[in-house]
């Protein structure tokens, strides 16, 4: 059949999404590790490395547009290309969170953190796991998995709320840690947003397979409100 070229191009786009996704996972894990270890040189490397993520994202966007312009994909094919465009944007922003966390590292300087925050590493690990599974679901066209994964974002939200309370309590107990705690709040916030974007990717998988365009995580409006959930608990 005369689809060889188009099939090859669609495969290439998805391979590139997987590569970009794995670069983003590495970046976010490395950013959190550098934060914990107070490794400023590593933090600087991650900030520089974000340029490569951005470059690849633009390349992927160009490849998608070339595919649209030259192959005129239809139906399921055009949905794949549209999904790759959207996912690449999400991945690029997820890469920015790694850069943001690394900037916080640089701001905090070389001294050890005022308190260990294992939950931050757990948030990064869970977020990366969700991202890996979401991208697998995308290339496998696994709608069931794509619908399921966003519900696990609650685990990341719960960790975020925990970190939020701990840091707020720390500030109340000792206002001199205000600056450092606020910076760490931003780190937790970035990691929480990181997982939210996994939900976007899952939505694109559902769209690619079914053509359905709707939010998968309607309860979770924009971001969780720690105040509200802390009262609830």
């Amino acid at each position: 059949m005369p689809r060889e070229t188009l099939d090859r191009k669609l495969r290439q786009l998805q391979d590139d999404v997987l590569i970009l996704g794995s670069m983003v996972q590495q970046a976010i894990k490395a950013a959190v590790a550098a934060l914990q270890a107070r490794d400023l040189a590593a933090a600087r490397r991650i900030i520089e490395g974000d340029m490569e993520i951005n470059r690849r994202r633009f390349q992927l966007e160009r490849d998608c547009l070339i595919c649209l312009a030259t192959q005129s994909p239809m139906a399921g094919d055009v949905r794949v290309v549209a999904a790759v465009l959207e996912i690449s944007t999400d991945l690029e922003r997820m890469g920015d969170y790694a850069k943001g966390i690394s900037r916080v590292s640089l701001m905090l300087g070389p001294k050890p953190l005022f308190r260990p925050l294992p939950e931050i590493e757990q948030m990064a690990d869970k977020g990366c796991e969700l991202l890996r599974r979401a991208l697998d679901a995308f290339v496998q066209r696994d709608v069931a998995a794509a619908r399921e994964i966003p519900s696990e974002d609650d685990q990341v939200d719960a960790l975020y709320n925990l970190v939020y309370r701990q840091l707020l309590d720390a500030i109340i107990a000792d206002p001199t840690v205000m600056d450092e705690a606020t910076n760490l709040l931003w780190v937790a916030h970035d990691l929480e947003r990181f997982s939210d974007r996994v939900t976007n990717i899952c939505e694109r998988t559902v769209f690619t397979v079914t053509g359905e365009m709707r939010e998968l995580d309607v309860d979770d409006q924009d971001q969780p409100s720690p105040e509200r959930t802390s009262k609830d608990s």
Partner: peptide, 9 residues
């Protein structure tokens, strides 16, 4: 329809 408009048949 999908197969036809995407060039599979």
């Amino acid at each position: 329809t999908e197969d036809y408009i995407t060039g599979r048949i």
